[in-house]
Nucleic acid binder design. Structure first.
Length: 536
RNA sequence: GUCCCCGUAGCUCAACGGAUAGAGCGUUUGCUUGCGGAGCAAAAGGUUGGGUGUUCGAAUCACCCCGGGGACACCA
């Protein structure tokens, strides 16, 4: 990774240069000029002559130049390009991987939707992002656990049980009303029907309490299973499903209450128990135990954070919808109060996915039964397309989703452009193998680069650098954009340079380019969780 | 009232404070023998919502407006 070497050597920032300014560039002269009040160009001269003294370093480049306002531009040497190209073939599916993570344990929690209904599009965004980030960090040498927090306690789940119970009573010919606060989606009726068919309830129909309990347990199990199915169909698999009830059963929630009490971090008011969050950076205090005796979500969050830490994770990443923005501040206040290492917790918020129907925005609501499910979408639009749609965007962008438009546009999605480039490369490789052409490391003849070849190699060897950066800033969409760029370079190369049937040595050389292209596309798409067709 | 995110080409979105603001879709025009045309080449399309600052340099940072989304519960 030449970029890293320049960075080390200079001790300043280095970036990929815009077209026409070499391969890498640094603004160090401008920065130094500001600090020392010297002219950028003279500062640049000094740096430049220093760099040139280091023979080993300057051998990496065909040219190092000082440009206009005060940039140093680096042009990669031909041999470096050729060596790195061989590196791609040598490392194959490991190309781009690293050991920087040093096996540090990372927990990534994502999706974590309540088991009270199907997954929504927003959950899909979380799923696509979490899965990809996990794969990337793994590739970079971390030991990643993908985790799903299952809220199997509390009011929403109780409400779910009651909803199913009421539908169940209806099915059994009992007169019951169905209040507005019940879950309105059709899937509730489906669950109630299965509940009846399975004969899962053995008690009396008049014992409403017992019915609710039984229906709740049944519904949570059914829905959890279908959540797993939906995610599997979307190509996402969590390593750990962590039920909230486990925290309660192991007394971890009570332990927090106890500790807060001892350390004078909580107090009673209006029959409820409050956490003194205002002592830890918040505007107000927060309820952790309601006057009806039930503990709040926040308390579980505290216990859960502590639990994760206890399991030995070095870093805990939460992927949350932007509607949890305020929760983040509350959780952090709790971390401070409990003296847990705040820097090990990282909260990533993605902006919400809103639904557009016939030009109108519709607020999705699970309770009101008004949403598009991930399953519905994936039935109409291939999972690869949906993932690309999410992963090409920054987490900070709102997504307005129009199902009709998505269906219509699906076959124009850029993901096909990338897959097509891959298929073309595979096709050439197949053909070459068929007629016995092999790639070779040592070529007896070195050809000058064709423009499209050079651009392609340079793009290919950026891959490890892009991954390293993305692993730092978690901006997965940068990786997505890179792969799209790369596909463009590949298609241009394909269009202009004949591979099979070219002059003997040249044929071999271009074949290495083809092979390297296939490798990088494969590695990149795999990290995004997008599939690689052999044929289309 | 406080806090978070966004406003960039007709549309959907990119752009570590850097050099000429880029892709895809859509529009217009070309490209058969060469390996898959789901491609390639080119054109048109922009006062980066508006303003004031900060500095060598601002789509990016600060402040003020305008517009959109979200959060500020004994909801989850």
């Amino acid at each position: 990774m030449v970029k890293l070497e320049i960075k080390k050597k200079l001790g300043g920032e280095v970036s990929f240069a815009p077209v026409g300014f070499g391969d890498y560039s640094s603004n160090l002269p401008l920065v130094l000029a500001g600090e020392k009040q010297a002219s950028p160009m003279s500062a640049g001269e000094e740096i430049l002559s220093d760099l040139k003294k280091d023979k080993k370093f300057s051998k990496l480049f065909s040219k190092i130049e000082l440009a206009k306002p005060g940039f140093i531009n680096f042009y990669l040497a031909d041999e470096v390009l050729r060596e790195e190209l061989q590196e791609v073939l040598k490392k194959g599916e490991k190309y781009g991987s690293a050991k920087n993570g040093k096996g540090r344990k990372i927990n990534i929690e994502f999706v974590s939707a309540n088991p009270t209904g199907p997954l929504t599009l927003g959950n899909g965004r979380s799923a696509a992002y979490g899965e990809s980030l996990a794969r990337l960090l793994n590739f970079l040498g971390h030991k990643v656990t993908k985790e799903y927090f299952l809220n199997d306690l509390g009011r929403q789940v109780a409400l779910l049980g009651e909803s199913v119970a009421r539908r169940f009573l209806e099915l059994n010919g009992r007169q019951t009303d169905y209040p507005e606060e019940m879950y309105q989606g059709e899937y509730i009726l489906d669950i109630a029907k299965k509940f009846k068919e399975d004969g899962a309830y053995h008690g009396s129909l008049d014992d409403f309490e017992s019915l609710i309990k039984s229906a709740q347990k049944y519904a949570v199990e059914k829905i959890t299973a279908s959540l797993k199915d939906s995610l599997a169909r979307f190509g996402v698999k969590h390593d750990v499903w962590f039920p909230e009830s486990e925290l309660e059963n192991h007394g971890e929630i009570d332990k927090i209450l106890h500790d807060f009490n001892i350390n004078n971090l909580s107090y009673e008011k209006d029959g409820a128990l409050w956490f003194k969050s205002s002592d830890f950076g918040l505007d107000s205090d927060a309820v952790i135990k309601k006057s009806n005796g039930f503990t709040t979500y926040l308390l579980s969050d505290f216990a859960y954070a502590k639990n994760k830490l206890k399991r030995g994770f070095d870093k805990m990443i939460y992927i949350l919808g932007a509607d949890h923005h305020a929760d983040v501040a509350r959780i952090k206040s709790g971390l401070r109060a409990m003296k847990l290492p705040e820097e090990k917790f990282r909260f990533l918020l993605y902006q919400l996915v809103t639904l557009v129907e016939k030009g109108e925005q519709v607020r999705m609501s699970k309770r009101a039964g008004r949403f598009v499910t991930l399953d519905e979408l994936v039935k109409e639009v291939p999972a690869d397309v949906v993932k690309f749609f999410f992963l090409a965007k920054s987490m900070d962008s709102h997504v307005e989703f129009d199902l009709d438009l998505a269906k219509e546009e699906s076959n124009k999605n850029p993901v096909y452009y990338i897959q097509y480039a891959f298929v073309r490369m595979q096709s050439i490789l197949r053909k070459a193998k068929g007629i016995g052409i092999k790639t070779e490391k040592k070529l007896s003849k070195v050809y000058p680069w064709k423009e499209e070849e050079e651009e392609l190699v340079k793009e290919l060897i950026k891959f490890p650098e892009i991954l390293a950066e993305t692993g730092e800033n978690y901006q997965i969409h940068h990786l997505t954009a890179y792969i799209l760029d790369l596909a463009g370079k590949i298609n241009r190369f394909y269009e202009t340079q004949k591979v099979i049937g070219a002059e003997k040595e040249l044929e071999k050389f271009r074949l290495t380019l083809v092979q390297a292209s296939a490798i990088v596309l494969r590695n990149g798409l795999t990290l995004l969780g997008i599939s690689l067709p052999e044929k289309m």
